[in-house]
Design a protein around this nucleic acid. Structure first.
Lengths: 196, 196
DNA sequence: GTCTATACAGCGATAGAC
DNA sequence: GTCTATCGCTGTATAGAC
């Protein structure tokens, strides 16, 4: 098969390798081989290996950062806003051709040279913690450290991504709804009279 | 401060670097620097970089593999057996001096040279999926693909580990119980008459 | 836009003195 | 048990032909 768009193909193959091996451990030779070109040809499309991971990151987080901050500012129950956001986030990510979990799961964001990306993710996480705190204060959610809660949401999201990247998904919207339901069940304070 | 046991200190510092940078990306020079010795001195304590990660892995999984298989074979509700296992697992991991999340989170297990370790983890995961399936069949748990469920449990466990590795924990047992409760809420089928 | 050839920095691991 | 010195290899990136 012929790659109609070498640049796009580089992003797809690189993301899969970053997911499997980590960012620093993935070599430009391996990326080039997966794209079916020679290693120096990569540098015609991207200035550096770093530029590749920066573009993947931007694709996955740019719109998500706007949406999570909207969810923070809106009215209504925090649980519904969180659920709505998660459904959008998961169904969007399920449809992307790159292995998006590579960004959040791997070593890329911890590398000193990519500190700028890590800062952007941190402000995304701050908004998520804010939303969780709203739900805790209103009594909708169990009493949990928002920082731990944020780690939970992020890790469950990534687990869902990994699942959809490896399996064949016939209904990404249904999978997204199931994932959002799973998170909400875990966070919602049980309504029964008996505690625990 | 003097390292009373250089070998132990190598394991601790290496695990933290593996967590931050990934296995393949962490250099023996970085490990040595963190331990306050020179790089070639590492090879007096371990035959290779690979031998270091193998020992960390073994410490974290050897007993866990036995316990999860016991949990599979025991009698009683699957939800209680899963809860009991998770409390033991989390409280044990919270007390370990190494950054155990490094093993499950990073690139180490995907490296071809460490395929043997990956196989051991896979059989651990199979037991976990088995336990989840028992709970699904008995109606205790929501109807979820056991493979996805296993990914969820693993990722929530890792999120807990990451939290405890970065924060100061005064009550590891309480944190472990809260973590196990979180997982069980997510999996347990809601008992109320109204669905969702 | 892709190739061959190559520069040069950094890697894991070894040798041998102390 | 730790050191200095160094080997052989592999990494990113560049130069220049086609």
């Amino acid at each position: 098969m012929e790659a109609v768009d070498t640049r796009q193909e580089i992003l797809i193959q690189a993301s899969r390798l970053f997911k499997r091996l980590g960012y620093r451990a993935t070599t430009t030779r391996e990326i080039a081989k997966a794209v079916n070109i020679k290693q120096p040809s990569l540098f015609h499309h991207f200035a550096s290996k770093k530029a590749i991971v920066e573009e993947i990151f931007s694709l996955s987080l740019k719109e998500a950062a706007i949406r999570i901050e909207e969810a923070c500012r809106q009215e209504g129950p925090a649980s519904e806003r969180l659920h709505q956001y998660l459904v959008w986030d998961l169904s969007t990510l399920h449809r992307m051709p790159m292995a998006m979990s590579a960004i959040y799961t791997g070593d890329a964001l911890k590398s000193p040279e990519l500190a700028e990306l890590a800062d952007k993710l941190k402000s995304f996480y701050r908004a998520l913690e804010d939303l969780l705190e709203q739900g805790i204060r209103s009594g909708e959610f169990v009493d949990i450290d928002p920082q731990l809660g944020r780690l939970m949401v992020a890790s469950i999201t990534i687990a869902h991504l990994e699942y959809s990247e490896d399996a064949v998904i016939d209904d990404p919207d249904r999978l997204a709804r199931d994932g959002a339901d799973f998170v909400l069940r875990a966070f919602r304070r049980p309504v029964t009279g008996t505690p625990l």
